[in-house]
Simulated assay, not measured.
Amino acid sequence: MTRIDAKFAALKAEGKKGFVAYVMAGDPDYDRSLELVRGLPGAGVDVIELGLPFTDPMADGETIQLAGQRALEAGMTLNRTLQMVRDFRTGDDTTPIVLMGYYNPIYSHGVDKFLEEAREAGIDGLIIVDLPPEEDEELCIPAQKAGLNFIRLATPTTDDKRLPKVLQNTSGFVYYVSITGITGAAAAQATDVGPEVARIKAGTDLPVIVGFGIRTPETAESIASVADGCVVGSAIVGAMAEGKPVSEVLAFVKSLADGAHRA
């Protein structure tokens, strides 16, 4: 059982919904980014999604693209991202961390080497947005053999024929993308999301967590009420981009987490 599995089992036992926060590793610099990540559990975050900066983030909207650029310009690399996880783990050995990004940096690093180092650093799961189920032998299967969850995205365009393929080797949780398009675009609507979550849950026992289009505590509460939890990314990354003190960003994160936990 991974930390992710244990966290969602504990939330279920408490009758609570989960709150997942996405932040970009190294944005705007290593020290401020690490300060933010270290503060997330105290702000009510159940699972941390750590973005791996990449030069061509095709699924991301402008807010997260710019965050990745700032991180890369500040010297962030895959190795430094793994070091950030190690630094976090010196004070927190329980909060799950999911590394979210693209396959190219992992492929360049070497899959076997990456998986060994990721596991050693304290990463619990992967979301690699540009690897479809047809490529499971590339990373998904090796990751699961190494003890890491491989979390798959389902979208409004994932029809009933495609869904079983998407769910086939997924573990940890299913990430349902509430809107078509890129991150940070439109606002998620619980009336649209609810039936889709039910459709996914008919095909899996895994928790279904909803992301994209959640920017306020009220939306976090409404979306979490029809799922097992929600993810917020662009709104948090945007708050960091405005140059706000980390303490202020964490207060905003806490308001979102409180919203999800009220559901």
Rank of each mutant, 00 (worst) to 15 (best):
F8T: 00
V20D: 06
V197Y: 06
L126Y: 04
P142Y: 11
E135Q: 14
D112F: 00
M24F: 05
K12D: 12
N149L: 01
A263G: 15
L163R: 12
E221D: 08
I128W: 01
E218C: 10
T191S: 15
D5Y: 00
Q168L: 09
I200H: 09
T204F: 06
T219H: 01
H109F: 15
A198R: 15
D92W: 04
E242K: 15
L153P: 11
V232T: 14
Y175W: 10
I123L: 14
A9L: 12
R3C: 01
Q83D: 15
A118N: 13
F19C: 07
S222H: 04
N149F: 00
L78C: 05
G238N: 08
T77F: 13
P133M: 08
A188G: 09
A59R: 01
L36A: 13
V129K: 00
T170W: 01
A59P: 01
F252E: 03
N149I: 00
M84V: 10
Y175G: 06
A146M: 13
D112Q: 14
I97H: 02
L163N: 12
S171Q: 12
P105G: 07
A257W: 04
V37F: 00
E138M: 14
G181A: 07
G172H: 06
A235R: 05
I128S: 02
D31N: 09
L139N: 08
R86P: 06
L153W: 13
D130I: 05
V193Q: 05
F114T: 02
S108A: 15
M58P: 00
V45F: 03
V20G: 02
F8Q: 01
E73F: 01
D159W: 08
R80N: 02
P96D: 05
S108R: 15
I151D: 08
G229V: 10
G18K: 03
V47A: 10
G147L: 11
M100P: 02
V23F: 09
T55I: 07
G125I: 03
A190Q: 08
T157D: 08
K244C: 04
A74R: 13
L52T: 06
T158Q: 12
G91Y: 06
G61A: 11
L82M: 13
L256G: 02
V249T: 10
I141Y: 07
V45P: 01
G68N: 11
T81S: 15
F19L: 11
E49Q: 14
Y22T: 03
I64E: 04
D228F: 10
A71L: 12
Q144E: 14
D124C: 09
V226F: 05
A188Y: 01
F252V: 09
A118G: 14
D27P: 06
D192R: 11
D29M: 04
G243N: 05
L115W: 12
P132S: 10
Y176S: 05
D5R: 05
D130H: 07
L167F: 13
Q144L: 08
D124I: 03
P96W: 07
